[in-house]
């Protein structure tokens, strides 16, 4: 499988700092996969997201050793323009990500395309295509500011997707959203995954992330401490590590501590139920 993005023994210091935000991180993101990132606050999750999107070091400056490759090219050589045209980036606050220049959702989605200098007819075509793809046609004529947080985040995603990035990185996209908005965003991510989009998503809602991600990366203190299936990563996480366990996993770990669970940890409810002797705890 082709590699979309990779970090090779990558260590990064933000400008003017002496403690690295990421330390010796080596990871390869395969094209078409959904990779989740978990870790406590200030663990380096965001820095890893910025690095995989090329925003570090092209927008957030600093020094580094090792390198980050985006589609085979060194992210530092791509420059900001090269990075943003290859990798889409979405973060947690939906309202700050609205351009502030658009009266309608359609215009908002078209904004990035206008910045790319596409012909108006091409902009119109891609905007309509994106609206249809994401099921946002009903919202096309509405003001982005009149929408719910979840809908705004979908518009932001649409605006970034319309630019046809080869990979999408999302840094805590649902932390400001209510459960309805969260569900809407994850439903969209599931559809994107099914369509073969490469997705990297950092989240505190680890249970939800584990249901969609093929693979999890656990970042702590700037280091990659675990890289594997959700079950493997949750098995490695301790109670004081700042990462929430899905309820089935927590229950199974409790059972395992009493010698009443063997085998891989369940992430989904069905897996827990299947693994229980006689179907009861």
């Amino acid at each position: 499988m082709a590699v979309a993005a990779a970090c090779e023994d990558y260590t990064f210091w933000y400008e003017g700092t002496s403690v690295p935000a990421l330390a010796s991180v080596t990871v390869a993101i395969e094209a078409g996969t959904f990779v989740g990132i978990v870790g406590r606050n200030a663990s380096g999750k965001s820095t890893l997201c910025y690095s995989l999107a090329g925003l570090v070091p092209n927008f957030y400056h600093g020094r580094w050793t090792g390198r980050v490759l985006l589609f085979g090219e060194d992210a530092a050589d791509l420059g900001l323009a090269g990075a943003v045209t290859r990798v889409g980036f979405v973060f947690h606050n939906p309202e700050s990500q609205l351009s502030g220049t658009s009266l309608t959702v359609r215009e908002e989605i078209a904004f990035g395309l206008g910045n790319l200098g596409l012909a108006p007819s091409e902009i119109a075509a891609r905007t309509d295509e994106t609206l249809a793809l994401l099921g946002l046609r009903d919202l096309a004529a509405r003001s982005p500011y009149a929408l719910s947080g979840g809908q705004q985040q979908l518009v932001v995603l649409a605006s970034v997707l319309a630019m046809r990035p080869r990979m999408l990185v999302l840094d805590e996209p649902t932390s400001e959203l209510d459960p309805v908005g969260t569900a809407e965003v994850f439903a969209l991510l599931a559809r994107l995954k099914a369509a073969g989009t490469t997705l990297v998503v950092a989240e505190h809602k680890s249970a939800l992330l584990a249901q969609h991600a093929d693979r999890l990366l656990w970042i702590d203190g700037g280091r990659l401490r675990a890289d594997g299936t959700p079950a493997q990563v949750f098995g490695a996480v301790g109670p004081a590590d700042g990462v929430a366990l899905p309820a089935p996993t927590a229950v199974a770990r409790g059972l395992a501590a009493r010698g009443r669970w063997t085998g891989p940890l369940p992430v989904r409810l069905e897996q827990l139920v299947e693994g229980l002797p006689h179907g009861r705890i």
């Binding site: 406590r40 606050n41 505190h204 990462v243």
Partner: peptide
């Protein structure tokens, strides 16, 4: 608890 990690919660 918005935006808090597990420890913060």
């Amino acid at each position: 608890t918005t935006g808090q990690d597990w420890e913060g919660v």
